[in-house]
Design a protein around this nucleic acid. Structure first.
Lengths: 198, 198
DNA sequence: GCTAGCGTTGAACTGCGTTCATTTGAAAGG
DNA sequence: CCTTTCAAATGAACGCAGTTCAACGCTAGC
């Protein structure tokens, strides 16, 4: 019986993640509703809470998948990139932009989850973030061989944050959305200027 | 009679803005509740809706004030800054950081308001944003006299977004908050590197 | 079959923003 | 003054969320 239950829960868990993923992608994080989920999954509302602590946990599970896809996209872009470290940075920045634009709602959900104050980010979040940072810090280490590890960490964070900021404000239609080409141009501008000048 | 009513509404409007401002500053945007507001203001819940269309309108009124304070802080920092354009950019970036850190909840509320899809940002938002952009584009124009106006606009946006991204992720405690000094260092790094190397 | 006990269920609870039938009170007219 | 009138203020009620838990039903072991 323990087996049966566990298997059923696992099945429900995965079904719920898929439905939530589709909902968030199509209508955004705020469209995630317990009753709608239950109806779509063909289960009771309470069943959701047998499998996830609350809806935020479910959204976090979706975010883990989104973050993973993002990482994969960036890695793929990097694989096809030239060997020049500066160009690698530019390619990755623009891959980040492409992912955010193509998965706007899902990407926004990564940052829109209300975090309980004082609560640390989940492990997978930090791990995935670390993976992204590694992609950035490798070309930077090649560009700045003299810098200390601490300096490289700071540089990495600064560049990631800069690209993130450019994409975030660029895609925000409220501030009169910026054309996609302009976003790519800004990313290239900042990264080339930064890393190009030794 | 018309006078009396109008005066009372204006008074209530301002009282509500002050209470909401205090609430948002102390506990964040999500702590804004109609019933609490009414209790604090000594009015009926319905009275709020005689003065504001909904709670979002009230939050926007608070945001207008916050944005104005932010602009004033940056302008003040600029007034005390050296004449070197690069240093002016650095000083402004760090003033932005200081404001965000010292007014975390209020600053976050500027970007956390759920915007109706397709709805443009309010005029005051665009106007205040334009003021900030002007502060940035002036030193940039001095640094890059050869660039076209369109290029300067792009540069301005790119640098603002970069600083915003650095502050946003740096202050986000979920991703293991970055020490304040490191944030300042990253801002200086990006801006000096960018603007310093002609 | 029977029953003990655990997993599932969905009605009910709480708390939110928002509305609107009712009440109130101020101004105009007698 | 008192009465009439009507717009503005009121707060109980509504709709809609997330979450809970007493009751139900299924399954496994006898």
């Amino acid at each position: 019986m323990a087996r049966k239950t566990e298997a059923r829960r696992k099945e429900l868990r995965e079904a719920l993640i898929l439905i939530a993923e589709r909902t968030i992608a199509a209508e955004g994080l705020s469209a995630l509703r317990a009753r709608d989920l239950a109806k779509e999954a063909g289960c009771a509302v309470g069943a959701i809470y047998n499998v996830f602590g609350d809806l935020t946990d479910l959204a976090l599970a979706v975010n883990a998948r989104t973050f993973h896809r993002l990482g994969a996209d960036v890695a793929e872009a990097l694989a096809d990139a030239p060997t020049d470290p500066v160009e690698q940075l530019v390619v990755m920045g623009q891959a980040y932009h492409r992912f955010a634009a193509a998965n706007h709602n899902s990407w926004r959900a990564l940052f829109d989850i209300e975090r309980a104050p004082g609560e640390a980010a989940p492990d997978w979040y930090l791990a995935e973030m670390g993976r992204l940072f590694q992609y950035i810090s490798d070309p930077l280490a090649a560009l700045f061989p003299k810098h200390s590890a601490a300096d490289l960490t700071l540089l990495t964070r600064a560049l990631f944050s800069s690209v993130h900021g450019i994409v975030l404000l660029g895609l925000d239609e409220a501030s009169a959305g910026v054309p996609s080409d302009d976003i790519d141009r800004m990313i290239a501008l900042v990264l080339r200027q930064f890393a190009g000048s030794q």
